[in-house]
Design a protein around this nucleic acid. Sequence first.
DNA 1: CGGTGTAGTCAG
DNA 2: CTGACTACACCG
Length: 282
Amino acid sequence: MAEQQRPFARGFVCGLLVALAVACAYLLFMQEEVDPLVKRGAEILKYGVPERGPAVHYLHNHVLAYDSAKRTPLWVAEHIKSKHLQGPADRKHSKFKPDPSVDPMFTAYDRDYRRSGWSRGHMAPAGDNKFSQEAMDDTFLFSNIVPHDIDNNSGFWNRLEMYCRDLTSRFEDVYVLTGPLYLPTQEGQQKVVKYPVIGENEVAVPTHLYKVVIAERTDTPISMGAFIVPNQQIGYYQNFTIFQVPIEDLEKSSGFKVCPHLDRSKTKNLCEVDSCKLRNRK
DNA sequence: CGGTGTAGTCAG
DNA sequence: CTGACTACACCG
C-alpha cells in the first residue's frame, strides 16, 4: 500500500513546488514591472508617509472626514429615517468636546469658540438623533462642528435641517452630506480665499456651508439637490432653491466627488420632485 | 482649586 | 428646534 502511494506523494510535492515557484516568480515579476515607483517611494519615505489621522471617522450615527489643518470636518454624512427622529435623547445631556479619534494637536477646543463671536454649529444636527443619546452625544464632538454665524445657525440653517427631517415623512430614506466651504472672492484683479480663524488653535471659519440631500422612496427616481449657503446672517427665504447649485459646482469647490457610486443620469432634481420650501416663520 | 453635571435664563 | 450665558452643587 505504502509503496503504491509513494508516486502520488512525490507528484503532490512536485506540484506544490512548481506552484510555489510560479507564485514567487509572479510576485517578483509584479515587483519589478509594476512597483518601481512605489519601491523607490518606500526608500524616499524611509521615515514614514506624512500622517494626518484617519481618512474616515465612524461615529454612532454619522460618518465624517476631518480637515486637520482647519480643525473642522471636511464632510459629514448621515442617513436619516423617521424612526431616528423620536426618542428620549436630550441635548441638555450632551457636551461639546474633542473627538477622541482626532489627534489632540489637530482638534478644536471649547475655549477656541468661547467669546469668538461664532457659534458652534453642528454639521450632523443633534435633532437627527433623538432615538439615541449616544448618537446625539457624538454630534457634539468638535469633529462635527464648524464656526457658524449664530443668526444663520438658529435661523435659516435650522429650518433647512428641519426640512431634511420633514423629508422622512415623504421619503423612506434621506441621505445628507454637510460641510464647510472656503470660496474665493474677487479683490481687484485677482481672486483670493479669505477666512478668519478663531482661538488659540486657529479654527477656520468657513465662508459658506453646503448640504447635499438625497431622498429615496420605492417607485420614484432618486431625488437629489445640492445647496451652498453663505455663513452669515441671511434673511428668511421660504423658497431655498435660490441656494441650489449644480452638484458639479459643489464638487469643484469642495475638491471631492460627492456620491461616486450614484448614477446621476437616473436622478431627478429634488426641488422639482419636492417643494424645497421651508415651513412658515412661526 | 479646577473640572463636571444640572438647572435656568435669554434669544433667533 | 438652534444656540450662548450664568449660577450652583458636587467632587477629588
